[in-house]
Amino acid sequence: MGEAAADVMRLEGITRDFGEGEARAQVLRGVDLTLRRGEFASLMGPSGSGKSTLLHIMGLLDRPTGGRVLLDGQDTGRLDDDGLTRCRGRTLGFVFQFHHLLPEFTALENVMIPMAADRGRFDPSMRECAQALLGRVGLLARAEARATTLSGGQAQRVAIARSLAMNPKVVLADEPTGNLDTHTADEVFTLLREVNQAQGVTFLVVTHDRRLAERTDRIIEIVDGRVVSDERRGAR
């Protein structure tokens, strides 16, 4: 029981097929994976190994062809689309490779969107909360800047602040530093690590940068849709 409570996300026998008939391709071929609360894990693998697909299934953005995704012990396969959306909004945060901020909105508004989407309206307490988050990622000064005017590193910081808006249990980051120069990539990675340690948020970071992966608690490697190595590195 104590073991189960420590598992924030659990994948059981996940498969995912694309296409039909002759063109059918099995991208995930039975993945079992458990994320522990407060863990800072990295997911590595060559292009086409299925790591983005796995991340989307873990993020409830996609449904697996077979297998179960349990979030905090709850089987998400039973939820309808709106249920998935709600569950996703409340327990998961995303950081994408391309920051994916909404260009029509300011940095602050981008951080507020997950809160407003969940509550159905904007209110002043959200503004304070979003300001605190922007302060946390060191970007309070640019709160009112349009998303399009931010540099790559700044935009990724805002995206991190947005991923934390709903106080998620797990943040899934898809190559969050893939588009940044080495120095900025280091800074952003350090920020993720800080958030993980300060708030105990579980992180799963997809990366192809071995050097960055070495800085995480756990390296999961996936090749051809299967987990080929899962290495825990010392105590966190």
């Binding site: 909004g89 409340r90 909404l102 260009p103 709903m166």
Partner: peptide, 16 residues
């Protein structure tokens, strides 16, 4: 399309 995807990924329901 992409922004709609982001909105949905960040918790905006289909109805919204």
């Amino acid at each position: 399309s992409r922004e709609i995807g982001i909105l949905k990924a960040t918790g905006t329901s289909t109805g919204a």
